[in-house]
Design a binder for these strands. Structure first.
Length: 122
DNA sequence: TAATTGACCGATC
DNA sequence: AGATCGGCCAATT
């Protein structure tokens, strides 16, 4: 697996998002080595085959808003899925302060990925 | 082939 | 806090 296309690289980053965490499109793009191409992330997800079982629902807008169109079935499922993982969602927003994913350094500061996200850190 | 679209982002007003 | 604008670039029309 040497020459992965940008799309496949994005899939890999999305797949690397830990349970109970969310990441923004721009962040995924940056981690995939393509800063500034946030929109491409959305396309990559829409083009992702179901076989990958990609956690697409862990991707939200930079402000924590659900990027999917209101009233859409996919959006409703995204919210349900995130809540099922213990992510706090108020209105149409995710609490990025507690559920937002950060680069590996944060895992060292915040603890291993198995940490229960319900627990406020303060 | 050109124009339009889109699961966005950041700065600015 | 909301709205506007430019940038980004592959897929679709």
């Amino acid at each position: 697996m040497a020459d992965r296309s940008a799309t496949e690289r994005i899939w890999a980053v999305v797949a690397a998002i830990p349970f109970g965490r969310v990441a923004s499109y721009g962040q995924v793009a940056k981690l995939a080595g393509q800063p500034g191409r946030a929109r491409f992330v959305g396309q990559a997800l829409g083009s992702a085959p179901d076989g990958l079982d990609l956690p697409w629902f862990r991707i939200v807008a930079a402000d924590g808003r659900i990027a999917l169109p209101p009233g859409s079935e996919a959006r409703r499922q995204q919210i349900a899925r995130l809540r099922a993982e213990g992510v706090t969602i108020v209105g149409d927003r995710v609490d990025m302060d507690s559920a937002g994913w950060a680069p590996d350094l944060d895992e060292l500061l915040w603890g291993p990925a198995g940490l229960a996200p319900d627990e406020p850190l303060e």
